[in-house]
Amino acid sequence: MDTSKKGQQKYAEMVKKASPNSPVFGDCIKAFVSGGIICTIGQLLLDFYIGMELSEKNAAAWVSITLVGLSALLTALGIYEKLGKFCGAGTIVPITGFANSVVSPAIEFKKEGMVFGMAAKMFVVAGPVIVYGTLTSMLVGFVYYFVK
């Protein structure tokens, strides 16, 4: 087997030819509709909470809490995983996807105990979101502090 750089490149082309691509168009339609539906539910919830005479900021927080809770329920029932297989990014990108990525390892790793399993692994997928979100917000803060 020719494992030189050139041989590897040639093989990479063979692999590319032999490997089917993801059905991008169909995937995008599914992502659009499912992601759109989740956002619409978010909007309905927002209108509902504002209708309950909450401030806009508090209403938005309640929307997050409600969606996270719903996602956790669907994840625990094994439904979110099935939705995710079908909807792709449509169920990953909304905050429900974030919740799913926190709840999933918490359930999966509880067998390793409630401290080193459930709790320690809870942010194994979503941890980077918090880390980089925090760092980016600090960057934004620095710039804002010195520029404003």
């Binding site: 490997s19 089917p20 691509n21 993801s22 059905p23 995937d27 994840t75 625990a76 094994g78 979110y80 995983e81 099935k82 939705l83 995710g84 297989k85 909807c87 792709g88 169920t91 990953i92 996807g97 799913n100 990525s101 709840v103 999933s104 390892p105 359930i107 999966e108 790793f109 194994v124 997928v125």
Partner: peptide
Amino acid sequence: EKQFRFPLPLGTQRPPT
């Protein structure tokens, strides 16, 4: 899956390969 990929309840798509 648990060891090599993701926790099972995580909603992901598997590529055709």
